[in-house]
């Protein structure tokens, strides 16, 4: 049994099948890249793991616990999911951080020292905390989302195209941050070669098309 087990997962959209009988078992510490052409269901798999959609059939479990209505609220606290849509807030970045770490599940995880370190690791300027989130560039927004995931203290990450708007140097840096920690389990969806170069396993969904 892995950290994440997916069995016979099928996804349909508007009556047509996108993905059928998809299996995946992820062990602790694995660094997996999921790739495939657009619209093949990569992001939908992540959404289903988080309980954000309806699967046609199949089973998903995290740490052996089925992803269902009863368990989903606790399971979400276990996973750090960064979606490709970075439109997550209005107001100042610092207010967003305060809000996210005011949630009961995150209060214990938040460390101010950690925040300064991660800001520096992600090559963000300290002044970014007082900027309006909506006025940041796409790359800055991606790094703020990553910063929040890193600050959450979790060790299982679902990262959906999180380096698409970063330059090459930063892409390598971010990949290293997530893939170099042997304790962390990471599933990444990306078209960037930096992830493919360091992944322990690459899953190409194109072979699963109906």
């Amino acid at each position: 049994m892995g950290i994440l087990d997916i069995q016979n997962l099928s996804i349909s959209y508007d009556g047509s099948s996108i993905l059928s009988e998809f299996d995946l078992s992820v062990s602790k510490g694995e660094k997996i890249l999921i790739k495939g052409r657009s619209g093949i269901g990569k992001s939908t798999i992540f959404r289903l793991i988080m309980g954000f959609g309806v699967r046609s059939s199949g089973e998903i479990s995290l740490d052996g616990v089925p992803v269902d209505a009863e368990n989903i609220w606790n399971l979400r606290k276990r996973v750090a999911y960064v979606s490709q849509d970075t439109d997550i807030a209005e107001g100042k970045v610092t207010d967003l951080i305060e809000e996210i770490f005011s949630f009961k599940a995150n209060r214990a995880a938040y460390e101010r020292e950690g925040l300064q370190r991660i800001i520096s690791d992600l090559s963000l300027s300290p002044g970014i905390l007082n900027k309006e989130y909506t006025k940041l560039s796409g790359g800055e927004k991606q790094r703020i989302c990553l910063m929040l995931a890193l600050l959450s203290g979790k060790d299982f990450f679902l990262l959906d195209e999180v380096t698409a708007e970063l330059d090459v140097g930063l892409k390598q840096k971010v990949v290293g941050m997530f893939f170099d920690n042997p304790q962390w389990t990471v599933l990444s969806i990306s078209h960037d070669r930096e992830w493919a170069e360091k992944a322990t396993k690459v899953i190409d969904l194109s072979g699963k098309v109906n």
Binding site: D87, I88, I100, F103, S152
Partner: peptide, 22 residues
């Protein structure tokens, strides 16, 4: 319109009411 903001908060471990406060 801003469903992603809500889902982001849920994925950051928020309870439903915590995520809906904004």
């Amino acid at each position: 319109r801003n469903e992603n903001r809500y889902l982001f908060r849920l994925s950051m471990g928020a309870e439903k009411t915590e995520a809906l406060i904004p």
